[in-house]
């Protein structure tokens, strides 16, 4: 029993190590990007494209300022609130649509309409409805992120293996047991990629809505940097937004997803694993 537990622990440590080790490849990619950026800087000069190191320094200066943290926190809070609402609404709607064909037929055209309206139009509408408040940002994020989650979850629910459902029924599982032991587990594999995309767009849309609605946060800071023609500071803010997104994605979304996808990795031969 204890050896089995120790084995499981070692296995887990191994996977964490593998995950951390894969970070080198990510760093190499970022370094390549920085090199291209530096080349652009040397070609076009300081005003158009400040050097990556200068941007980093500006970013560090901003990061040292507690007021900046407040701004970033404001944006994060709005994005996360909108994201949470979108995740809940999208997951519930997607499950309903995946399990009931009639709901799916009703939801499809609505979704097409929602996706067809440009996000910028939503910002304008939300500004009229809510003024320059958190509500504007959260509504815009909600509208932008819900369809992504909805489509992912609905696709998961539709592609569930009905053979497994029959198997569970043969062993006496009721509808609720089938949903919790089979349906949700299958949907989870589709939910997490959708959540990654939704979280990314939540941040991006939040910053954009803040900039346009002039409601503070990172978007507000960007607007100020633009007014001052301070390219280094604008880029630094972009850097901070991206860094926050990367941090969330690699500390939260990826580990959870790889836990769910463990069985898929099990079949891959050595060397092909990430």
């Amino acid at each position: 029993m204890t050896t089995a537990r120790a084995g499981a622990l070692l296995d887990r440590l191994g996977r964490v190590g593998q995950f951390l080790w894969s970070g080198w490849a990510g760093l190499a990619g970022l370094a390549l990007f920085a090199a291209l950026w530096q080349a652009g800087h040397e070609r076009y000069g300081d005003f158009i494209l400040p050097a990556p190191l200068a941007t980093l320094a500006a970013g560090l200066t901003i990061a040292a300022d507690p007021a900046a943290w407040e701004l970033a926190g404001q944006t994060t809070l709005r994005a996360v609130e909108g994201f949470a609402l979108a995740a809940a609404a999208g997951a519930a709607g997607g499950l309903a649509a995946g399990y009931s064909a009639a709901t799916m037929r009703l939801a499809r055209p609505i979704l097409t309409v929602l996706l067809g309206v440009p996000p910028i139009a939503w910002i304008v509408l939300a500004m009229i409805w809510f003024g320059s408040t958190d509500g504007t940002i959260i509504t815009t994020v909600l509208v932008a992120a819900t369809p992504v989650v909805f489509v992912g979850v609905a696709e998961g629910a539709v592609t569930r293996d009905r053979g497994l459902d029959d198997m569970a029924r043969a062993f006496g599982a009721g509808p609720l047991a089938r949903l919790t032991t089979l349906g949700l587990r299958h949907v989870a594999a589709f939910l997490f990629p959708a959540l990654t995309v939704a979280l990314g767009s939540a941040f991006k849309v939040a910053v954009m809505a803040e900039l346009l609605a002039n409601t503070g946060g990172i978007g507000g800071a960007l607007a100020a940097a633009r007014a001052n023609l301070d390219v280094a500071e604008a880029l630094a803010w972009v850097l901070i937004a991206v860094a926050g997104l990367i941090a969330v994605e690699y500390t939260l979304v990826h580990p959870i997803r790889s836990e769910f996808e463990r069985w898929r990795n099990a079949a891959r031969p050595w060397g092909v694993k990430r």
Binding site: G163, L164, D166, M167, A168, F171, G172, T181, A189, W263
Partner: peptide, 28 residues
């Protein structure tokens, strides 16, 4: 109480063989 074996094994792809065998016990 009955058990059933199908033409295709119908195992849960995300669960180990042990968890698959234990699946009906989990339902119980």
């Amino acid at each position: 109480r009955h058990g059933m074996v199908f033409q295709d094994p119908r195992l849960l792809p995300w669960a180990t063989a042990r968890a698959n065998i234990a699946y009906p016990l989990r339902l119980l």
